[in-house]
Amino acid sequence: MPTAHPHITVCDATLRDGSHAYSHQITLEQVRAYATASEAAGFAFVEVGHGNGLGASSLQVGESLVPEREMLRAAAGCLRRSKLSVHVIPGFATIKREIVNALEDGVALFRIGCHCTEADITQRHISYVRSVGRETWGVLMMSHMASKEVLLEESRKMQSYGAQGIVLMDSAGAYLPQDVSAKIGLLAEKLEVPVGFHAHNNLGLSIANSLAALEAGARIVDGTAKGFGAGAGNAPLELLAAVLQRQGYPTGIELYPALDAAELAAKLFAGSLPDSTGITIVSGLAGVFSAFSKPVQRAAKQLGVDPRDVFFELGRRKVVGGQEDLIIEVADELARRASSQPPARPRP
C-alpha cells in the first residue's frame, strides 16, 4: 500500500534559467504569455529574471534585453495563485540597488544563492528579506563540488540567517542519483526547513535526480518547461508533473495546463530549447556551470579551439559560477598552446 506522500512545492524556473538558453533576450511578451500559462498550470512559484538573478545583467554574463524591473512587473501582473520568485547572488546583486526594488515589484520569494561553500556571503541579504517580512530561501549552487557534510554546514548557516528553505542546485548537471540521495538525504534529515533540488540535464538524469531527491526527503523541486534552461537544460516540468502524479505526490499542479504550458514554451522559445550535445555532456562531466555553454562556444569559435577542451580546462581550474571571464583567458591560452606547440593531447 502506498504511503501518503507529503505536498511538494514545484518551482517553475523557465523564465529565469531559460534566460541563459536565450542569451538573456526574453521579451516582455514572452514573459506575460508564459507566466499566464504557468499560473494556469498551478506551479507554486514562477521565477523570473536574468539567468544569474537580480542585478546580473552585465558584459560578464550577458546583458538582458529587458530591464529586470519591467520583467518582474510584467510577470507579477499575470500571477494570482502562483507567486513570483527571483534568484539573487550576492556579489552581483545588492540590497539597496536590487532587492529593495524587487520587493516593490511584487516578488514574494527571494532565493538567495551562492557558490556552495560560501554561505556566509548571504547573511545580510537573507536577513534583510526576512526583516521586511518576505519569504526567502537559501540556494547552494554548484553543489556537486562539496561533500554532503560541507553542504549541511553551509545550509545550517543559511538556516540560521533566516532562510525558510534550502535548495541544492546541480548547476553543472554533474550529479548521479546516488549523489542526490546522499546529499539531499542528509539535509532532509538534519535541517528544520524544507529542502529542494534543482536539476540540470547534462547527463540525461534531470528527472531521475529530481525523483531521487523527493524520495530522499526533498519537499521542493525546480523545473522548466521543456527543460528550457542553461546548457542541456533543466528537469522538464511537463515530465515532472507527470512523474509526480504517477508517484502520487500532491503538488497542486493541473496536468493538462502543465502540458499546455510546455507546448507554449516550445513555441515561444522555438530554436533555443536545450539539446544534448557533445558540449553539454562534456560540460556535465567536467562539472562546469551549465550557463558557461554559450560563452564557451563563442570564445572557442573566435579563438579557434575545441570547446570541449575549454570545458575540461575550466573544470580542472574549478571555476565557479560568475567566473565567465576566465573562459576567454582559457580559450586564449589553449589557442597559444596550439599555435606554438603540437596539438595538446586529448584530455580524459
Partner: peptide, 16 residues
C-alpha cells in the same frame, strides 16, 4: 562583480 573561489590551492586574484 565579485566572485569568491574556494579552490585549493588558493586562486590568485584576477581582475577583468
Amino acid at each position: 562583480i565579485l566572485n569568491l573561489n574556494p579552490a585549493q590551492p588558493c586562486v590568485h586574484m584576477q581582475t577583468t
